[in-house]
Amino acid sequence: MSSDLFPPADTPPPADDSRRTFMKQAGGIFGFALAAPLAGQAERLTAYSKTVTGATTLTLRINGQPRTVQAEPRVTLLDALRERLDLTGTKKGCDHGQCGACTVLVDGKRVNSCLTLAITAQGKEITTIEGLAKGDELHPMQAAFLKHDGFQCGYCTPGQILSGVACVQEGHAKTDDQCREWMSGNLCRCGAYANILAAVREVADKA
């Protein structure tokens, strides 16, 4: 990742994660670009008051916590998570929406973070693999992947697990065939599909 996408002027995460603080920093969904431009930054206020040019401060609500990142509009949610926020559980596979390794939940829906611009994810609830467990207690889908050995190399696993969580929640894991079809957006080059299927189906049956 070239450094020009992420200038060094980062702002630390807020100590206080109250809603008031979050709203003030995020400025709601629309207000983000109206925040005072950082000195030296190329933010441009044109006739279209919400135009953003160059790096600006984005506020993303990730796993329940507001996080800020300095990024240009072209930075994807995937790169913001991995390269800037140290949330490297989300994986970059193809970077073109063809493999599902980058799957995260945005407002509860599974999406490819490689084809989502970080700037458009502001004001939304983002859930990554790091946000599933409650302390030391694994999410049932994580536990099921361990139990059924739903991986070999593990690279596709965070995306598989998040996709599995959404698949069950959507009600699309009721039969093996249905589950296979609705998990088809997540490729596994090790071919652990049989065990992935067993894990997702087990969670669906218990749900």
Partner: peptide, 10 residues
């Protein structure tokens, strides 16, 4: 990806 400016149209 090229750099670009971004506008949220309302």
């Amino acid at each position: 990806m090229n750099d670009f400016s971004y506008t949220q149209a309302t």
